[in-house]
Amino acid sequence: MLLSHDVDQQLRDRRPDPKPFSGWALRRIIEIDHDCPGLLAASFCFGAQRRQALFLLLALAELLGIDAIAHHLRSAESMPELTSANSSAVFGEAVLRLRRPRDLVRAVLAGPPVGLLGTLARLGHDPIGEPRTYYELGRLYLSRDPADRRRVKILGQIGGDLVGAQIPIVSALDPVLLHPALVSRLHELPQVTELHSALTYIRARCSGATDDAIRASLKRLKPGGHRGDLVKFWAARFDEPPVEFNLRGDPTLIVLDSAAALIDAGRRYTNCLAAKINEVFLGAFVYVEFRSVRCGEPGLIAELRHTDRGFVLEGLYGPDNRRVHPERAQIARRKLAACGVALLAHAPGERETVVAAARLLNEHALVEPDNHVGWGNEMLEVAEGLQHLLDEAA
C-alpha cells in the first residue's frame, strides 16, 4: 500500500519538465499573471499543442485587445461562470480551466477550424514569429478562399515539424507555386520574393511555362533538393531569347537561340554548349553557328559576349573544340563584324612589331590568328564595331 507522500511523489514525477519561453509571449503573459497568479508557472508545463493554443490567444489579445478576447471567453458555452470584470483575470482563468487545446481554441474561434489543432501541435514549445504570424495562421484556417484552402492543405502536407517562417511564406507564395516539396525548401520570406522574380523571368523566356506546366514541374523536385532546381528545369527549356542578335540576312549564320538549339549543336559539334544554357538564358552570351557553303566542310561556333554596348567576339570553335583554320576564322570574323560584332584588336602600329613583342613575352595565345582569344587576321578596333552599332541605332 502506497503512503500518501509516495502518491504525491509519483504525481510529481509524471509532470512534464518545465519549459520556459521568451519574447513577446512571455512579456504578455507576465502582465496577465498579475491578475491571475499561477498562469505563468502553469504555462511552463503545458504540452506543445496546449502551449501553442495559448500563444494563439495571446497573439489575438496582442492585436485585437485583451477585452475583445475576454468577451469571447465569457460568451463561450463552456465558460458561462466567468463573471470577473477584469479581462486579464478572465483570460487567465479560462486558460487554466480549459485544459484541452480544442476547447481553448473553440472558445475564441468558431469550430475550431479543421486541421488547425494539428498544425499547432507541430509548432513546438516556443512562440513562432510575432503575433501577426498567429493571426495569419488563424485567418488561413478560417478562410474559404480556394487559394487559402490550398495553402492550409500544403501546411498539412509538409513533413516533420513546422517552422514559424513557413506560415507567412505559404501566405505570400504565388498559388501556382504551392507545393509541399517547394515550400519545405523555403525558410525565410525574402526567398519568396526572389522566387517570384525568377518566375516572372521564366514566364518571359519560356513559352511553355503555363500555370499548369509550372505546377507539373514542381512534382519533379526531388527530396533534399534546392529551390533553384525549379529555375534550372525551366532554363533548360527556354525558347524566347533574352538578347536579339541581327544576322543582317546572312544565311550562313544561325543564332542558337533556345535551349533545344544549344543542346542539338552541342551534340553535333561534340562540345559543351549544353552546359552554356544558363549563361544564354540569362543573356550573358550568344552563340552563333557558321555553316560553310562548301559541301562537306565542317562549320564552327562563335561565342559572343553580350555587353551594354553590343557584342564582342570571345572565341571561335570547330568540332570537338578544335582550332579553326586561319582562312575560315578570317571569313567568320568578317561576317560577324558586318553584323556589328566588335573584334579584339592589337596595339596601334605595325602588326609584325606587335606580334614579335607578343611572342617574346610568351603571349602566344594572342599571336595565333585562329586561336579563340587571338587578335585574328581582321584587325578591327573594338570602338569601330561599337560605333557601327551606334550608327545603325541612329
Rank of each mutant, 00 (worst) to 15 (best):
D145G: 04
E188A: 13
G160H: 00
E136I: 07
E136C: 09
G129Y: 04
E136F: 00
A165C: 03
Y141C: 13
D145I: 11
G160Y: 00
A147P: 00
P127N: 10
D126K: 12
R132G: 12
P175A: 07
D174W: 04
V163A: 12
E136G: 08
V163D: 05
P131Y: 13
R132I: 14
I158T: 01
G138Y: 09
A147F: 05
G160F: 00
Q157W: 04
D126W: 06
V183M: 06
I128G: 03
V170H: 02
R150E: 14
P168I: 07
G124E: 10
P131L: 11
Y141H: 15
L142S: 15
V163E: 08
R139P: 00
I154Q: 02
A165M: 04
R185K: 15
V176W: 01
R132E: 15
S143T: 10
A165K: 03
H125G: 09
P175M: 10
L140F: 03
L137F: 04
P131S: 14
S184K: 10
V152Q: 05
P190A: 12
E130H: 14
L137I: 07
P146C: 12
G164K: 12
Q191P: 04
S184N: 02
D126L: 13
V176Y: 02
H125W: 09
Y134V: 13
A147S: 12
R139C: 06
R122A: 11
L177T: 09
Y135M: 11
H187S: 13
I158F: 06
V152P: 01
L142W: 05
I128A: 15
G138I: 08
S143A: 15
I169S: 07
H125K: 07
H187A: 10
I169K: 06
G160M: 08
V170A: 06
R149A: 06
H187R: 12
G160R: 03
R139N: 11
G129M: 05
I167F: 08
H125N: 12
E130Y: 11
L173N: 01
L186N: 02
R149G: 02
R150I: 00
D148H: 05
V152D: 01
V192P: 02
R185W: 00
S143L: 08
E188K: 14
L186K: 01
D174K: 07
D161G: 12
I128R: 13
L137R: 09
T133G: 10
L177P: 10
A181T: 02
H179W: 05
V192Q: 03
L182W: 07
L155W: 00
G164M: 11
V176D: 04
